[in-house]
């Protein structure tokens, strides 16, 4: 499902990842461990598509697609995204609005119709009960 081959990553000419290989099959759960500064977050950020980092070598395939050339939003729409350790709080963006925009973007990507504000609220209430 996810395959990382010989991944090298630089930030401002400083090499941080020096050849990572990793294969994740569907249904598997992996935990990556290591001391501070060993590049765990860098790996996660690169996979999510943070433009601060430069990939100098290697390839990453997700469901058979090369994702390194994709924009972060397209990776997310393909189903790969990063859960932030410290989620960014954006003053003025309400959670409902944010979630709905996000869902609609992904629906659009999949060729589905956008969901209306009232339907989305209904959906949210259902999910809340289920949880």
């Amino acid at each position: 499902m996810l395959s990382i081959k010989n991944l090298h990553v630089k930030i401002d000419d400083k090499e941080i990842l020096r050849g990572i290989d990793l294969k994740v099959k569907p249904g598997e759960v992996h935990a990556i461990m290591g001391p501070n500064g060993s590049g765990k977050s860098t790996l996660a950020s690169v996979l999510a598509g943070n433009e601060m980092f430069e990939v100098s070598e290697g390839e990453v395939l997700f469901n058979g697609h090369d994702i390194l050339d994709m924009a972060p939003e397209d990776r997310a729409r393909e189903g790969l995204f990063l859960s932030f350790q410290y989620p960014v709080e954006i003053p003025g963006v309400s959670m409902v609005n944010f979630l709905r925009t996000s869902l609609n973007e992904i629906r659009k990507y999949r060729g589905q119709d956008p969901i209306s504000a009232s339907d989305f609220l209904k959906l949210m209430r259902e999910k809340k009960k289920a949880g």
Partner: peptide, 13 residues
């Protein structure tokens, strides 16, 4: 950072 966060949730630039 906020921009990146939104993009990782599938919202384009």
């Amino acid at each position: 950072e906020a921009m990146f966060y939104l993009r990782t949730r599938g919202i384009n630039r």
